[in-house]
Every structure is written in C-alpha cells, then in structure tokens.
Design a protein around this nucleic acid. Structure first.
Length: 263
DNA sequence: ATGGTGGGTTACCCA
C-alpha cells in the first residue's frame, strides 16, 4: 500500500496561479489537493489542464470571490457542495470521498469567512458560518471514519501561531470568539495535524502582501489540516511548503502538505 | 494613526 499525500492551498485566483499550481504539482505529486479562493465560476474551471496533469477535480465556485475545489489523482465520489443550516450564497465548502486503495477518505475543502474586523457584520457572519460548519462536521463524522477537513480557516488557533501575538491580541484571525469556534471543531474529535507533528512556534501559512511581510516573516498559521483520530494515527509528516510563496506573483498563502501511512 | 499590496471588477469590493 502507498502513502497518501494530501495538501491544501489558498491560491488567491486560480486563473492567475494555474501555471504555478501545475509546476508545483509536477514537483509535488500529491494525491489530493484542496484549493481555496479559486475566484472562478464552475464553467471556467481548468479541468482540461488539470486532467493533463493527472488530476480530476470537483469545484464549487462563483465570479470574483471565494470558490473551493478538490483535485485528486484517485477517483472522487459523493461530491457535496452544501453547508446545511445556513442560507449562504457564498461558495466556501466542498466535500468529496477519495477512493484510495487503502480505503475511502472523506475530504472537505473549506474557505472560512475572513470576518474583516472583530464586531463587524462580516465577523458575525464568520461566527455563524463556523457554527454551521460545526453542525455539518458533526453529521459528516458520524458517517466517515477517515475524514480530513482542510483549508483556509482564517483563524490562528494560538499565540504561537502568530508572529507578534501582542500586536494581534483580540484582532481579526486571533480573537477569543474565533479561537473558541476553532477549539469547538477540535472538540468534535478532530486533531490539528500540524500540532500533532510539532510544537514549534513560528510555523506560518499566510503573510500579508503589504509591508514586505513574507520577507520579514510576519506570518500567521491560518491554514489547517484537521483529521479524525484514526487518520491522525496515520500521519507521518506535516509541513508548510514556502517555495510557492517565493514565486513572482505569489499567492499570499503557502501550501500545507500531510503524509498518511497506509491504513 | 494610517496605509501599505494584490486579487477581483468598474464597487461605498475583498482580503
């Protein structure tokens, strides 16, 4: 049986990032790649280019904003694009079952609401969206033993995930209500794969385009891979690939990659 | 205290 490699990457426009994505997949032939912020309608999704690279894909997108996808070298079944319990026009969630030789793996690609500023209307929408995600994951966990929720959570779970915790204290991405909602996801029975792998501070996945934040490593860890306990036992490696963030015209996020030993 | 950068579209946008 083979190791299964899964990754997640907020590409901030798949139209702009597709060439970089194809290069990255060639160098990092992961089995599954979840994307966020494709910013494409479904009819504009580059299925042909990805198929030529060996990947089929399920996408849920819209014009200009949001958009999530799951790319896979293995068959995808049971694709779902709904977030129950929330009347939401924004395309922020897609789920599919990856039919791996070692057994089915449920993958959910999520682009959590950014929230703009603590206390704003968008912040309220973020908290409601996270509550609906919790409800949905509760249902999914009752059906799928090997499940991974991956994507841009727009939450830095702890101070060690923030370059300057005092400057970010109770600000968007770091506030207590957001961190409580993130902990609630873990309390459903999910494990933060990166934190199972390492206690190291200063592991970041996002750096603002402004103020040369990447060069100065002013980052936050807001992209995550959450796995069920049976999957957590199979995790052998978790890493953030800084390579794509060094590209010209990069996404502001870096990919997170997880290796799973055979079941 | 502000604004900076880079996606998107042509907006009092979104991150």
């Amino acid at each position: 049986m083979q190791v299964v490699k899964i990754a997640t990457w907020n590409v901030n426009s798949l139209r702009v990032r597709l060439p970089q994505l194809l290069v990255w997949l060639q160098q990092n032939p992961v089995d599954v790649l979840a994307l966020q912020e494709t910013k494409l309608t479904d009819d504009a999704f580059p299925h042909a280019e990805l198929e030529a690279a060996g990947y089929r894909a399920a996408h849920s997108g819209q014009k200009a904003y949001n958009g999530v996808a799951i790319l896979s070298r293995l068959p995808l079944t049971e694709v779902s694009r709904d977030l129950p319990n929330l009347d939401d026009a924004q395309k922020r969630l897609i789920a599919a079952t990856v039919e791996a030789p070692s057994g089915p793996l449920r993958v959910i690609s999520a682009y959590v609401v950014n929230g703009q500023a603590v206390g704003s209307e968008k912040f309220d929408y973020k908290l409601r969206w996270l509550a609906a995600l919790s409800d949905y994951l509760g249902q999914e966990l009752s059906r799928h033993r090997h499940l991974a929720v991956v994507g841009d959570f727009n939450i830095a779970p702890e101070d060690r995930d923030v370059h300057d915790p005092e400057a970010w204290r109770e600000r968007i991405l770091c506030s207590t209500p957001e961190r409580s909602r993130f902990r609630a996801l873990l309390e459903l029975g999910l494990v933060d794969a990166l934190r199972q792998y390492t206690d190291a501070p200063g592991v970041f996945t996002w750096w603002d385009y402004r103020q040369a934040a990447f060069r100065r490593n002013l980052g936050l860890r807001i992209d995550h891979v959450l796995v069920t306990a049976p999957l957590a036992k199979r995790v052998t490696e978790v890493g953030v690939d800084l390579g794509p963030r060094r590209n010209e015209r990069p996404s502001d996020h870096a990919p997170v990659v997880v290796h799973l030993a055979p079941a």
